[in-house]
Each structure stands twice: as structure tokens, then as C-alpha cells.
């Protein structure tokens, strides 16, 4: 038996076993993402003290929302995404995805989420279709249905069918990033983690991807966590925004709430850039200059 979670894209999902069945029951009522008092430290060297990457962070995302996470480089955005993805273990606290604990119900959670990171990582000699087919099989999708869905999604993102069989290394950075987005969407994630997905894209591609994110959110009921350095993108897409500084949450609210806060409390202009600079304690230019030198 298969159920179609994304009818417009015609992406078929297999009927998973008991864990998924109980997951779907929980999905209906629980928040899409619950992060409670999460802390993560790294010890880069045994002789050095641990570095606090995430400190007592709590978040609650309701189903269907787009939640922005903003902060300077090194503020912990990507670490937070990796913790939610199950790619890092938690030192303290807990994370639930639609009521499922990410450690206890690891496989069931993995079926519900997918992620796009700033670097479009692929087997570069393989074609977009071969890469996507591999991803689809890992998520238990049927090959033929996945081929059709991949063609449709990539077409929607402006990648012609004639490009799908050529090695991905022959594609531009922007096109590779679109394929990365298609890979994530192919599995119909109900929680989509987008870690700077439009970084490096030209303005047209950026707008296409942003429109597609809105479409996925609106039509497929996907909850989205978005980290970005593009404040206009955050303003356009996000229902709520969390600002991180030094791994801690320093502000959270809707864009109008945050703008009003900096205007009333700090006498700053009522802009998202002023919000960013007020709460991260640095200018946007500093952040952009450091982009690529450090990693979150």
C-alpha cells in the first residue's frame, strides 16, 4: 500500500511499518518541532576547554509554519539544524519532531524530515537523476514514481529534462543547489530544514527557490526551518524569527514584533537589518565578509 503525501507532485510514499503508523497519529496533534533546553558543546582539542555551540536553546514550531533562524557566522544556526537532523547528539535537553523523540524514535523521525544545506553535496560524477534516485531509494520510494517526481520537481525549478542525465559536476552552483532542494522535496518531508538554501544563487534563481519554498509550505503542509543571511528572504518567508548569538536565543517573535521592539526599546529604525544588528551585536557587512571563512 502506498499513500500519496504530495498529490500535486505525485510523490508516492511507501507504507512504513508500525513506527510510522504511530508517528502519523502523533503528527496530528504535536508541534512540528519542539526543542527544549538543548545544549551542545564541542571539544576541538583534548587539552582545551569545551566550546559551547548551543546553550539552553528552546523552540516550538507549529505545523505549517516557516520559522527563520538568524545569526552571525558561528552563532550556532547550522549546529542547531544538525542537532534537529540527528547528525549530532544532544548533550542536554530534548528534541521532538511531531511528538517523536529524535533519539528514541530515530528512524521514524528521519522519515519525516529532510535538509538542504548551503553546500550542495552530491556524487559529482553522477547525474542529477542518479543522485535523486539514490536518495529516493533510501527513503523507500519506488524508482519509477521517483523518476517522474524528480523530473517534475526539477522542471518546476527550471532544470530541463535534457540536463538530468549529465554529470552534476557540469552544472552551475545555482543549478546544483536547485537539485539539492529537489532531493529534499522528493521525499515529501513534513519538516524541512533549509540551511542557507539560496546562498550563492543568482537573483532569478533565488526568487524561484523562494517561490517554491512558499509553494511547498502552502500546498504540502510542510513545516520549514530556514536559516539565512538574506534578511529580505527572511522577511518574505518567515512567520516567526529566532535570533541566535553565541549559541543562545537572544530574541524571538514575528518580524513586525521584532521590528517594533528595536524601535521602541533601542530607538533603532524599524527594519529587520536593525533587528539583526541590535541582537547579534555586529554589522551585516562583518557577517557577509566572514561567510565562507568560518562555519556555524
Amino acid at each position: 500500500m502506498t499513500t500519496t503525501l504530495a498529490p500535486e507532485l505525485n510523490i508516492a510514499r511507501p507504507a512504513f511499518e508500525d513506527a510510522a503508523a504511530s508517528a502519523s497519529a502523533t503528527v496530528a496533534t504535536a508541534p512540528a518541532l519542539l526543542v527544549e533546553h538543548v545544549t551542545k558543546r564541542f571539544r576541538p582539542d583534548r587539552r582545551k576547554a569545551p566550546v559551547l555551540a548551543i546553550a539552553d536553546v528552546s523552540l516550538r514550531l507549529e505545523r505549517g509554519s516557516i520559522h527563520g533562524v538568524l545569526g552571525a557566522n558561528g552563532s550556532g544556526k547550522s549546529t542547531l539544524i544538525r542537532l534537529v537532523s540527528g547528525l549530532l547528539t544532544l548533550d542536554e535537553g530534548r528534541v521532538e519532531v511531531f511528538g517523536l523523540d529524535i533519539e528514541r524514535d530515530e528512524l521514524a523521525v528521519k522519515r519525516l524530515i529532510n535538509r538542504v544545506s548551503v553546500d550542495a553535496a552530491f556524487f559529482k560524477k553522477l547525474s542529477p537523476m542518479e543522485n535523486l534516485l539514490f536518495a529516493a531509494r533510501l527513503y523507500g520510494l519506488e524508482a519509477e514514481a521517483s523518476r517522474r517526481a524528480a523530473t517534475r520537481i526539477l522542471g518546476r525549478l527550471g532544470i530541463a529534462q535534457s540536463r538530468l542525465g549529465r554529470p552534476i559536476e557540469q552544472m552551475s552552483r545555482g543549478m546544483q543547489q536547485k537539485v539539492a532542494i529537489a532531493r529534499a522535496l522528493l521525499t515529501s518531508p513534513t519538516l524541512l530544514l533549509l540551511d542557507e538554501p539560496t546562498t550563492g544563487l543568482d537573483p532569478r534563481s533565488k526568487l524561484e527557490v523562494q517561490a517554491f519554498i512558499e509553494e511547498v509550505n502552502a500546498m504540502h503542509d510542510a513545516t520549514i526551518v530556514l536559516t539565512t543571511h538574506d534578511l529580505a528572504e527572511a522577511e518574505r518567508l518567515c512567520d516567526r524569527i529566532t535570533l541566535l548569538r553565541g549559541g543562545r536565543v537572544v530574541a524571538e517573535g514575528t518580524t513586525p514584533e521584532l521590528k517594533r521592539l528595536v524601535a521602541e526599546r533601542y530607538g533603532q529604525p524599524e527594519t529587520l537589518e536593525a533587528v539583526f544588528m541590535t541582537f547579534t551585536g555586529r554589522s551585516l557587512d562583518d557577517d557577509v565578509e566572514e561567510d565562507g571563512e568560518t562555519d556555524d
Partner: peptide, 13 residues
């Protein structure tokens, strides 16, 4: 290739 995180994120034992 840089794909390790994606493979480890997949619901595969």
C-alpha cells in the same frame, strides 16, 4: 564527496 551527512540522515539502518 561531502554526502556523508545526507546518507546518515536517511531512514536506513
Amino acid at each position: 564527496e561531502g554526502t556523508l551527512e545526507y546518507t546518515f540522515m536517511a531512514p536506513v539502518r
